[in-house]
Write a protein that binds this DNA or RNA. Sequence first.
DNA 1: AGGTATTACTTGAGCCGTCAAGTAATTTGC
DNA 2: GCAAATTACTTGACGGCTCAAGTAATACCT
Lengths: 164, 164
Amino acid sequence: MEKPAEPRWLTEEEMQAWLALGGVLMWLPSALDAQLQRDAGITHFEYQVLAGLSMSPGGTLRMSELAAFSNGSLSRLSRVVDRLEKRGWVERRPDPDDGRYTLAVLTEAGREKVEQTAPGHVEEVRRLVFDPLTQAQARQLREISRRIGQAIDPDGGWPPTAAP
Amino acid sequence: MEKPAEPRWLTEEEMQAWLALGGVLMWLPSALDAQLQRDAGITHFEYQVLAGLSMSPGGTLRMSELAAFSNGSLSRLSRVVDRLEKRGWVERRPDPDDGRYTLAVLTEAGREKVEQTAPGHVEEVRRLVFDPLTQAQARQLREISRRIGQAIDPDGGWPPTAAP
DNA sequence: AGGTATTACTTGAGCCGTCAAGTAATTTGC
DNA sequence: GCAAATTACTTGACGGCTCAAGTAATACCT
């Protein structure tokens, strides 16, 4: 009736770490969304999309590349780009090299939007994440995050759709 | 035309840490949800609700306490408890001490569900979070998460609705 | 060359969460 | 002791996201 192997429960210390991490997983994205929503009227995901484009040559990326960069599904990106297009920050055009691809291109207004938004956002990341940490802890955070990331996905390609 | 103060940009090291953390923020909740969905057909939030009840005396908590414990809004909890009630794992009843409160009570079936589900979930948390870390890193993770949590919310009460 | 398979994206249906307005029970102020 | 305010929760409207099915362009195979 019982599962045969006794599970390896968490130690007290691990439990505390897990609860604290749980809070961060829950509230950090929410806090970043709140800042961007308040100061720029966009979500964090929309910001990532605009930022991704702004860092690419010509402010241009294929939808699939942009989806990978912004850690979102193609379906989600498609709808987000709809919204950004309606707001005049992005345009879509077919890739002349291969008609299956769609290029997302940052408009001039879009570039202005990112450039106005970035400083406040970086400031918030710094305030919430790096200011409270020592430099050594920031390095530890990098290493710890990498290891957890590795455990979640030994390769590097996660976005939905596993093995066909 | 430019913002007066030059923002304090992130150093290369911070940028790497931020990207790595971003991946964890994005994919760890998703990975945990996937395991629970696959093995138990419930979301991580639903699990937290059931687990919260199972750890309370009599398997009973007021809705508002349960919402605080599970890091969700009351509105969200209300709908989730609807679902759990339909599945026969939770019941609602008015608090006899104060009719404004609603008590959520874990049924026998609900308790069995948590007990069947917990070991696999704990195993997954261990696999994704603690197995890849040294013990010292787990301690660091606790401290780092606490500091970030503190920066997000100096007190301890976040769930929506700020100062009235 | 032509049919099939694959790739890249889009879109309809449905679920889930939020916000704001509504309801019911209790406390407060006079 | 009763009206007004507060508290605890519920619910309708709405938007975003995912899954799966659909569409269009290109690659592959013989």
